[in-house]
Design a protein around this nucleic acid. Structure first.
Lengths: 176, 176
DNA sequence: ACCTGAACACCGTTCAAGT
DNA sequence: ACCTGAACACCGTTCAAGT
């Protein structure tokens, strides 16, 4: 009765990430994931409690990806914002998932800390949290709408992004 | 062979809206909607092509709600932004749906036009579109994150919102 | 100890048969 | 002309039985 495992949790999560982007949230079925890792659906329940936990693990993977991307920028608000937008372009479904499913506690910290530091650099410690939220809300909304096709009035999206980034910087200056 | 209809499209859409808020997108099943309007699931296919079309109709209803709310503000950017946020608080699932499903063409116009006018008032016609997108992206992101519980660093959300609104106004001033 | 087929409850959707 | 039960394909999930 040896029975070595034919897959691993990491492989299952990776298959989940791939399927999410290729087929959307509804395409991320237990059967499809199982097929990817060469096993039958019931076997997945040895690795995860249920589909919701798998989604949370995929969300955590996405949050870690964001954290890593942010950490390898120059740390300026513009750099952080651009890195976050790139993540949204590279993994649109994961971006959306992060606004729905809750990743592991602890991981979100890696996403917010660099932004908080950049905001503090600009407006000082007093209003750093509010300034960070201002910037985060803007870029989150911009990329969400961009991915959803919600900018339906034509015009150049890059213009709108550059304009927003410039106005953001102008808005976040030390208090008089 | 008279057979008068036992429900109507409007009733079906209204039931869809209610169920969406009460049970989330996954709770909005054809069987649950059918139960609400006193009919069996197959009968719904006399009113809508499939579940996706029902979701689009619910999204259209939500977009019209937003349009009406925006139209009954004072037309200032602050007024519009506050009305949009109130919509998100009153119908959180519908708010999320608007960032996913596409409502009927034409309806989005009613949502963006008042914002465009307010932006033009502030920065002039040259950059009105970009300014409107700046404001829209910020409030969309703020409410999305608020509803998702993504502001995980404590602090007062009303402070963050008021700060953002104030910085938004400061950022959107006529060019020098 | 992991894997599997079979089973169950639940979906969306179609369609022939009722009235 | 609308409504329905029955049916089909597809989910997520459980579990006893295999190795």
């Amino acid at each position: 009765m040896p029975a070595p495992e034919r897959t691993s949790l990491a492989e299952v999560v990776a298959a989940g990430c791939d399927l999410l982007e290729e087929a959307g949230p509804t395409g991320l079925t237990m059967q499809a994931v199982a097929g990817r890792v060469g096993v039958r659906a019931p076997s997945l329940y040895k690795k995860v409690r249920d589909r919701d936990e798998l989604l949370a693990l995929v969300a955590t993977d996405a949050a870690e990806d964001v954290g890593t991307r942010l950490a390898s920028t120059d740390g300026t608000l513009a750099g952080l914002v651009r890195a976050y937008r790139s993540f949204g372009h590279d993994r649109p479904e994961a971006f959306r998932l992060l606004l729905t499913a809750r990743p592991d506690p602890g991981t979100p910290q890696r996403m917010s800390e660099p932004v908080l530091r950049a905001a503090e650099e600009l407006v000082g410690p007093e209003r750093a949290l509010e300034a960070a939220r201002f910037a985060t809300a803007w870029v989150t909304g911009f990329v969400s709408m961009e991915l959803a096709g919600s900018f339906h009035l034509g015009g150049d999206l890059e213009d709108a992004f550059d304009y927003g980034l410039e106005r953001l910087a102008a808005a976040l200056v030390p208090p008089a």
